[in-house]
Design a protein around this nucleic acid. Sequence first.
DNA 1: TTTGTCACTCATTGGCAGAGAGTGCCAATA
DNA 2: TATTGGCACTCTCTGCCAATGAGTGACAAA
Lengths: 356, 356
Amino acid sequence: MYPVERLGIKMAFENLSEREQKVLACLISHYISSADPVGSRAIANKYRLGISPATIRNTMQDLEELGLVLQPHTSAGRVPTDAGYRLFVDRLLGSEEITDSERKTIEEGISSHYGGVDAILGQTSRVLAELSNQLGITISPKMDNSVLSRIELMQLADSKVLVVLAFHSGLARTILVEVEATIGLHDLINMSQVLNEKLAGLTLGHIRKTIQERLANTTGSPRLLRFFIDNESDVWNNLAMDQLHIEGAENLVVKPEFSDKEKLQEIIRLINSPIGLIEDIRGIDSPDSGIVITIGAENKAQEIQSCSVVSASYEAGNTRGTIGVIGPTRMPYAKLASLVKTAARQLSRVLKTGRQ
Amino acid sequence: MYPVERLGIKMAFENLSEREQKVLACLISHYISSADPVGSRAIANKYRLGISPATIRNTMQDLEELGLVLQPHTSAGRVPTDAGYRLFVDRLLGSEEITDSERKTIEEGISSHYGGVDAILGQTSRVLAELSNQLGITISPKMDNSVLSRIELMQLADSKVLVVLAFHSGLARTILVEVEATIGLHDLINMSQVLNEKLAGLTLGHIRKTIQERLANTTGSPRLLRFFIDNESDVWNNLAMDQLHIEGAENLVVKPEFSDKEKLQEIIRLINSPIGLIEDIRGIDSPDSGIVITIGAENKAQEIQSCSVVSASYEAGNTRGTIGVIGPTRMPYAKLASLVKTAARQLSRVLKTGRQ
DNA sequence: TTTGTCACTCATTGGCAGAGAGTGCCAATA
DNA sequence: TATTGGCACTCTCTGCCAATGAGTGACAAA
């Protein structure tokens, strides 16, 4: 309640006895695979800690007072709380290397693709979902920091112009614009050149803010220019929206945490229109590109407050993106951490070597 | 079993008495909204047919002998069979107009978008899912029949070339190709021009078959040419693969037909990698662009044999695509038929008027 | 041919007892 | 003083049984 008390609890976290740590670790390990409340006897039998169930019971009572575990009901075993997972992840988590076959799947799955960065990200989220048995997510390189490398205009049949924007990060986006009439080839090339001169080399964020002045005295197709300049068309804001790929909904269906249909429906709805989720996950980027784990209620998005997110960032040109997995808080953190880390590294490598 | 018998049953279908038709129609209507086996009393009470429950029971026995309904167990009401739905759809289906608000949603949801045809199709499947409360699906215009309107090469940083292909149907696709080194601007323009001369105006199917001869004596970047010509790179086959958008998985979660988790998982897996589904749904295109309904086991794909598909085709340039909804056989066919029909019309209109 | 009635079937529900898992507490122990 | 074994207690889960109720099939009457 009061800061002082919270501090007290914090101190207790630090001062957990060896035994309490061990019991907590065993309990969580066991719970992660069983999904059932863990009793003292189960721990005593499965892990040879050299202490009796009665002692474990006493220890578990202490852990419960610290808010690290809880009992669903009086005569049940214990289940970790968010705080328990937090402590486990921060201080008790061993490293668990991925297998050779998993590494191979990552290297083969996350590889150059003529579909470009978008296709690679799609594949990455599929690989993450498959290997983690959770939701696999990828967020495109932060568009606002992406440097526009080229902009090209292409006349289609009728009165349509296809605008192709290529970014240093390797991303390419196309936009279809309706213009007044067929623009002459010469005019189009001319306009392309001017646009490149005025916009190429700038970040999208920069372009968004200064587009009006930059294109103020430009000549060319009025409708095309208006499309670029008018706030109403909202092109630049839309371009700046990062893309999110989520795969693996089928993995959640069979998890006991989602046996409640309402809950399952809610999260599937979130997957299909993940508005807001991007900022939430991005917000937890670590500066040193390490693994970031947010647990349960630590997540801002309402819908995933009983889930955890294991994420890492990757490099793409001069900007970064984020990948990760989402699943119930009961997840194999150590394993997923090394999975996500390996995948992020592989993704950075693929995007860097230009093998894409 | 034998053709003769099948014919017998067919004849019986044709010769259903007025009363049998009415009872079947009532039974199906009721079952569609209740999802519970329908008893004779329920029909007698809800629909004023002027006959007693006992008579209805007799009629239902006849319908069961014809294979149009069945009893899950002895003391239960009746449930329609695939054949029952088939007959209902073919001969008893009234038309049910969509509401004004639904029409409005369709017209606003399926509208021009600077994301091009792909974005419009994505929106269409979302609108279909939302209004139908089932899965909404769209299949891109048949690529093999799509006429290539322009092909453009664009030098990116490093040794990458972005190939942009625009089709008459309004679709645009980009491909990233790794080349030996930076190609001079002049060479690139030159190559673009040659490619356009040799390929523009042809269907993708035509290009696939004749690409080797067509580009045989072309000069330009060897790696780029090899990419286009080599069977190994498989570009053209991949380009020819139609895109499928499916939305609305959240709608299925709460349907009693998918209370079995295995079943739900199976269909969500299908949604995420719908290999084969495209051909199945395409295969049922009607020539006259009307509504096509396939029921239960009529579907080829194993995973949707307890589902029905309501589909219609739309026009895009000089080729066609398909849209529709998928859901359990227990679906409001009349309503969905007019929904899909309206959506297909709107989609054709949007793609035609060049407002995209 | 239609209808009312009656016996019969079968899924569902609620109550209840017993089993089992697990705890908290306490006294004995090392 | 920390640990342990024992024991009473709590709570869930399962199976069983009877009652309920929806629905049918069959048959005789209208």
